[in-house]
Design a protein around this nucleic acid. Structure first.
Lengths: 118, 118
DNA sequence: CAGTATCCCGACCGATACTG
DNA sequence: CAGTATCGGTCGGGATACTG
């Protein structure tokens, strides 16, 4: 693993990391890692996300060029979301992150409990 | 890459991802990836972080068992921070994330500009 | 179905001052 | 040096209602 200098790592990269690190982006990207999904599919797949926040998150990811929004002009409306090539370069990292969180949930819970006990 | 079911990926893991994904955690973890650092070293290394937020971030990471805080009882105070074994398991992922952000800054900027122009 | 549009509360976080 | 304490503004984000 190469390490960037402090300046490289911390200055502009922080802006980008803020994006990836907001409340819902990683989960949305993870769900789109498996392929194309519609708005309502994502809403169902992500417990707790509000309609507003799903919209906002999707727009932000689209603006950043990470996902593509495809509108099919039919009635009722049909909109598909999938990863762009740029978004696909995040697939591995996002997957690793979600797997890490899943694998270390209990360790973190234990650490918190131990910390709070003191 | 194995994909977790929606439920596995989204429920409890979201709590953990919120931690990793907050404003400063990734940057602090990244800086500690290179080894032990003192409070003021981190403060200098991370432009824009306030004293308060560095303290809060370090406490949270310590509580979650990701970093270790070592107080040397001398005057003036000397406190070291480094990754725990659990924290070390995040090293690769955090490094990949920071490198990704650094490598794709321009693409994202271009995507934003293009999106905003429409 | 896939959104907009508002309202509004609470937390996040920066600024500042103080301390063992 | 490495914090803690307090204040206050901003804004993330939930709830609700409405629409092409």
């Amino acid at each position: 693993m190469d390490y960037l200098t402090e300046t490289e790592a911390n200055c502009r990269a922080r802006e980008v990391l803020d994006r990836v690190g907001d409340k819902w982006s990683v989960v949305v990207l993870y769900n789109l890692s498996t392929g194309t999904h519609r708005f309502t599919e994502l809403r169902r797949a992500i417990p707790g996300i509000s309609q507003r926040m799903l919209t906002v998150t999707l727009r932000t990811l689209e603006r950043d060029g990470l996902i593509r929004r495809t509108v099919h002009p039919v009635i009722p409306p049909h909109v598909d979301y999938d990863l762009t090539p740029l978004g696909s370069t995040l697939r591995e990292i996002v997957g690793a992150l979600v797997n890490w969180a899943h694998d270390h949930l209990e360790e973190i819970d234990e650490a918190r409990t131990a910390y709070d006990k003191v």
